[in-house]
Write a protein that binds this DNA or RNA. Sequence first.
DNA 1: GCCAACGTTGGC
DNA 2: GCCAACGTTGGC
Length: 153
Amino acid sequence: MRYWLFKSEPDTFGIDDLKARGKKGEPWDGVRNYQARNMLRDDIKKGDLIFFYHSNTKVPGIVGIAEVIKNAFPDPTQFDPEAKYYDPKASEDKPRWFCPQVRFKSKFKDTISLEQLKAIPALEDMALVRKGNRLSVMPVTEQQWNFILGLAN
DNA sequence: GCCAACGTTGGC
DNA sequence: GCCAACGTTGGC
């Protein structure tokens, strides 16, 4: 079992939206970055746990926990010409993008802010706090996971 | 809304 | 295969 951090803009799809999906969860679609794609496709497995991160918002930070309930499958939005994430170079035979199914697990009472995380020396190796990192999917070590959980309430 | 830091595209 | 131009992310 591994740990991850997924970013999402709360205005687009926040943790409350995931919670509203209930037990069946939501496909984590729309990721169009190869590095992130490889992790989604190859490394992220059913049972893994995810820190849900809100980006592009007033107080960016980790707001709760989600879990992977289904291994990645071809992201259907790549085949849909009407979809925002349509990719004309992808085909059903040769899908390019993948998404796992994720489900809400819990929400923290208070956001663990990026500012707070940046100030913690034990977390300085996290991709999240490193300058210029734009990955929307990134691994979290067990140590980092436990440390951050300790900050939650 | 600005802009730094990246990633991608496409001409050559 | 190089690299300039362009697009996107995301903190501030």
